[in-house]
Design a binder for these strands. Structure first.
Lengths: 253, 253
DNA sequence: CGTGCTGTTGAGGACGATCAATGACGGTGG
DNA sequence: CCACCGTCATTGATCGTCCTCAACAGCACG
């Protein structure tokens, strides 16, 4: 794969937004045993997968999901380039988390063996980055909980879109078109697909989403953020880089 | 305060369930500058608080909350003895997270300055414990999201109760009576108080909750878990202690 | 003995859930 | 090139649950 995985890549941006150094990127990339390409709709990790390796999304979009008793897919979160897909498996190891990862588009995945992960943790800077990645995930889930409980279907869908856009911004992806189907949104919000469709048509009629395509294409982000009551500060961990950079230096000595 | 904060205490149990050593407890307790008692309904952390110190709950129950535009309280999570109240503030530092912490009962809180926190992170074992605490929080939120989106009001309330009981079990608290009001449950689930009340009366009529008291007292946990479709494995990070203990030893050398 | 908070009960309306069916698009194979 | 198929998107109609408003009861404070 002759692609640039340097500091300008989504992964590089992700690490630096979490307070990592340029070094960290190198160390991480050297731990990669191989890269694989997973085609749309295929599994990156099966729900019963127990391979002792972690998956790092380099390109494409995936979702983590669980199955309900009736077999329906329930989407827990989306992953964008630079995100780890399955850190939870690493920490919780064998006991099948029953969480699967599915590719929503063609994806490029970097594989890192758990042995290498163990070694990576001995770098304080990388350990901090991983901790902060988890804290960011907590913040994302927390925000989703509040938006999901309170508020209408329209708000919830709008919030989900805002979150994805903001997270993609953070890693340098500015495509206004999201690689997510209405059914994905339904499974992620817990709304029936028909209701998702109706909220989307409302947004199209408001010129928030493009009416020229069946895809999800955002044309008015400000209005979208207004509908969602979206406050992107909860994602903005980048403000901390300065504080953390200092602290990491101290820790290293 | 002449209470035992040893390995048998909630904090001790919490640390060991996250794979910490007996050493870790000592190190952590030595970092405490002082303990304070906060009375019921008072704030442990104000929403605009910017004190450079972290709060560790030793006894009592608290909730973390946000305010909605209309001023209504939205409960994000509950904390039980052994939990950190506001690690998010430490990581996200100054920029007021707008998250407050309120005491639901009289609480005993240990205060640790950020300077000390920085120092604590230089112990790989403690750093791992904190990371795993965050991962556990992620797992909790994830589970809440699925239970909240799918499922009836009864299911959501039952799930919330199960989660609290299970988390209290994990730190050695087996009181069947939860120190939580119906209004707290309403603010935590996003349901109106009247609906919470109705679900609770259903559970009382099913002999899942005690009908002898106005408090929330669980008398049939199995049935409650059945109603909630509760699978406590997601909280069961204790299974990892063995794996992690090995790894920490390695990291230390 | 008030006052305020929590809990309890009732009735009405709104939103989302469910079921059913059709339309649009991309791929595959004849 | 067209027919076929599956997936996703769209539309309509009905039903149930949850949300809202309103009022009252129990209990703990001062």
């Amino acid at each position: 794969l002759r692609i640039d995985w340097g500091t300008g890549s989504p992964l590089g941006r992700k690490l630096s937004s979490l307070g990592g150094h340029a070094d960290d990127l190198d160390i991480l990339l050297q731990a990669v045993v191989r890269c694989v390409v997973v085609a749309t709709h295929n599994n990156v990790i099966r729900e019963d997968d127990s391979a002792a390796q972690a998956s790092l999304l380099l390109a494409g979009t995936t979702c983590s999901y669980k199955r309900k008793e009736d077999g329906a897919r329930s989407i827990l979160s989306f992953q964008h380039p630079g995100d780890f897909c399955d850190l939870h498996r690493y920490v919780r190891s064998e006991q099948g988390s029953a969480i699967g990862i599915q590719a929503l588009t063609d994806c490029t995945i970097a594989i890192i063996d758990y042995q290498e992960m163990d070694r990576l943790l001995s770098y304080p800077s990388l350990a901090s980055v991983l901790w902060r990645a988890s804290m960011l995930e907590v913040a994302i889930y927390r925000q989703r909980l509040t938006s999901r409980s309170h508020g209408t279907a329209l708000e919830r869908v709008a919030h989900l879109l805002c979150e994805q856009l903001a997270r993609r911004d953070a890693v340098g992806i500015y495509d206004p078109q999201l690689p997510i189907s209405q059914i994905d949104i339904a499974d992620a919000t817990g709304l029936p697909p028909v209701d998702v469709n109706r909220t989307i048509q409302i947004q199209r009629s408001l010129n928030v989403l493009s009416a020229m395509t069946h895809a999800i294409e955002v044309v008015d982000r400000n209005q979208l953020a207004g509908i969602a009551k979206f406050d992107d500060r909860y994602l903005d961990i980048s403000k901390l880089a300065s504080k953390w950079a200092v602290q990491i230096e101290r820790t290293r000595n």
